[in-house]
């Protein structure tokens, strides 16, 4: 694909993923020259209905989102889900746990019927997603790498091993030693163990690896006198829509 037309779209999210594209810094000008950005809500006025690649941020949480997503999927040849909200539903799914009707009532009171809101879902609940740039937000290089490898016709490489591997490679002291909890054993790497390296437990914002070694996580927890339930809440932050894996 030489100089593909790219659309950047946003659904329910915080704009942080789109912001990370604007944050490409010295890579920004190169990126803008390598592709032809025809839609980018956060940054450009122009928009078009012709594009090959759609970068999609955010989860689907209104009927209007759904219509718009279906429209995009008819046009784009390749859909890249960018960020936890798009990939797993992200934090937005916490609202589902609370209950949609209850949530509407809590925030909008007796005016709740004015609000268009449906259960939050990741975009692959509705359309086929070709690639996932995971994280909340993803690393900037991952977004660029995926697009770049598409341009040169390669398959982007996304790690399928746990954050612990990166964390140990960096020589960090395991956070469990400090009495903190961490989802490193089952969370998907690729962020260079960003949170544990800042002495903050991994919350699996990149989702989990394909075949998570649940026993490794459980062993680790029990070694420190914890159970899955104890830390489930942390995991739910980003994976509430897909939260049954660890309970098995």
């Amino acid at each position: 694909m030489s100089k593909p037309k790219v659309g950047v779209f946003g659904f329910a999210g915080c704009g942080g993923c789109q912001l990370e594209i604007l944050n490409l810094e010295e890579q920004l000008v190169d990126f803008i020259k390598a592709v032809d950005i025809v839609n980018f809500t956060e940054a450009i006025t122009e928009h078009s209905d012709t594009y090959e690649i759609a970068l999609i941020e955010g989860s689907v949480s209104t009927n209007h989102d759904l219509e718009k997503l279906e429209h995009i999927s008819k046009i784009a040849k390749i859909i890249i889900a960018v960020g936890a909200c798009a990939c797993t539903g992200g934090l937005n799914c916490l609202k589902n746990l609370y209950g949609l009707e209850k949530a509407k009532e809590l925030v909008y009171g007796d005016k709740k019927d004015w609000i268009d809101a449906i259960e939050t879902k990741p975009i692959d609940a509705y359309v086929k997603v070709d690639y996932y740039a995971r994280g909340c937000p993803p690393t900037r290089s991952e977004i660029v790498d995926i697009v770049k490898s598409l341009i040169v016709g390669k398959k982007p490489e996304i790690p399928n091993y746990p954050v612990c591997i990166e964390c140990k490679r960096l020589g960090n002291t395991c956070l469990y030693e400090y009495g903190l909890s961490c989802f490193g054993p089952v969370a998907r790497a690729g962020c260079n163990a960003r949170c544990p390296s800042s002495k903050s437990g991994c919350e699996a914002c990149r989702g989990y690896i394909d075949q998570p070694n649940i026993n490794a996580q459980k062993d680790l927890l029990s070694r420190y006198g914890l159970t899955v339930e104890d830390i489930m809440e942390g995991f739910n932050l980003y994976n509430a829509c897909k939260n049954n894996v660890l309970k098995k």
């Binding site: 949480s61 609202k95 609370y98 209850k102 925030v107 268009d116 809101a117």
Partner: peptide, 14 residues
């Protein structure tokens, strides 16, 4: 017409 995200609801119980 920003998708309402219901943060007030997400926070209850946290």
């Amino acid at each position: 017409p920003e998708a309402p995200r219901f943060f007030e609801a997400m926070l209850v119980g946290k």
